[in-house]
Design a binder for these strands. Sequence first.
DNA 1: CTAATAGTGTCTCTTAGACATTATTCG
DNA 2: CGAATAATGTCTAAGAGACACTATTAG
Lengths: 244, 244
Amino acid sequence: MATRKAQLVFERPLATVDVAIFTVLQEQLHVLLAQRPKADDEPFPGRWALPGGFVDVAQDRTLEDCARRKLLAKTGVAAPYLEQLGSWGGADRDPRGWSCTHAYFALLPADVADQQAALAGERVPARWVPVDEALKLRLAFDHRDILEAAVARLRGKVEYTSLPAFLLPEPLTLPQLQRMYEIVLGRELDKSAFRRRMLEAAFLEETGPVPGAGARAAQGYRLRDRDAPVLFPRMFKSAEGMER
Amino acid sequence: MATRKAQLVFERPLATVDVAIFTVLQEQLHVLLAQRPKADDEPFPGRWALPGGFVDVAQDRTLEDCARRKLLAKTGVAAPYLEQLGSWGGADRDPRGWSCTHAYFALLPADVADQQAALAGERVPARWVPVDEALKLRLAFDHRDILEAAVARLRGKVEYTSLPAFLLPEPLTLPQLQRMYEIVLGRELDKSAFRRRMLEAAFLEETGPVPGAGARAAQGYRLRDRDAPVLFPRMFKSAEGMER
DNA sequence: CTAATAGTGTCTCTTAGACATTATTCG
DNA sequence: CGAATAATGTCTAAGAGACACTATTAG
């Protein structure tokens, strides 16, 4: 198995990156989908898919660079929360041949998600779709599997991390943050226990009062670390058997 | 960005799979390393590396198939615990060009790890190395990063899953299992709390008594599910800020 | 003042850790 | 029997959920 030989002998699979980009709009978790081109020589023409595309060896230094490039192109957002989800590779997932995709997932605050509207109609049609709907669509490639994995990972991690904070613009308030948790988890949480947990985790810094929706203004907070979530020592309630 | 064009325009990166294979020998966590061939046209000749190699498009149906194939070749074990770790891709990690590796991690009981001795000397030299030592070596490629990530993932998950059960042959006993936890975590655990936790998680089935090392025989157990670990609702002790 | 939302206090119940105690087997 | 290991019981303290209560502001 000499390597020079290997380089010649082994056919190289196609390499792509796909990103599941989430945000919360109208009290619902949404994912960004892009429509595949309709040309006949394209795989899955006209179908909806996760935004993504080929790794550009000439342009991307690393896989993560590639993911950030695609994210910027689709959403106009430069530095959202981005984490690797996994890779899917096989002979059957792309009609053009053996391919590997490197899947990422990203979280965006709703306000910058709106900026995406400005980019809409530029090149490829893209739209925000509620995840329940998206999972019912016949997505291109194996993107349904990937989206399922992304949603499972998100829901799982929300049980014991501060991830939902990345779904909000700063300054954020605790009532807003609790709402994000509830939307992603699909169940209500106790206010007192929630606040205790967030404040004890000490990942928030007070800014000023924020005159939110209600009568009384809420305390505003900023994240101490915009790059990584905090991990809590326990899960909410009893969530045994859930995905992580 | 027509796709047919893309297939022609974009150079395809190299695609490999690497596996961090762990076992516990002599009360220490070990990882299997393989020595790179010494030919001059090879990258990192003679260096130690995680076992792995090129994806074989002709032979492997999926990435996981590829990982299992490499595992079987190196260890003779067909169905150990195997999970995807992540992918590392970039222009600089392999001197032969832009490459992506799909990293997996596997857990083996010590008894089957011994079978590996039988395979030793066959083709490529391979040996079990304590992880602390392995992390001090100058490994090939970016395998040090990958190994660090694998160890962090293992240590992190051991805090709240039944993963260490995959490091033991069946039937296993609770004292043995506790030892596995302690070795991976590097700290001692309380016996009573440990047993309560394991038994309440209900992932074990009683077999018969096992006349272990000590005076009194211990109850033997078998895993209800050999494919996936169980998740506990909390971490051991306070392990805030640890990797997951 | 009242309605609405933000934020706090207190009680209870679960449960993990600590550690003492009992059980079983070998020599 | 006693040494060694396996297994259980009990106490305590921390912490989460439940829920009632107080605080602040708009109209």
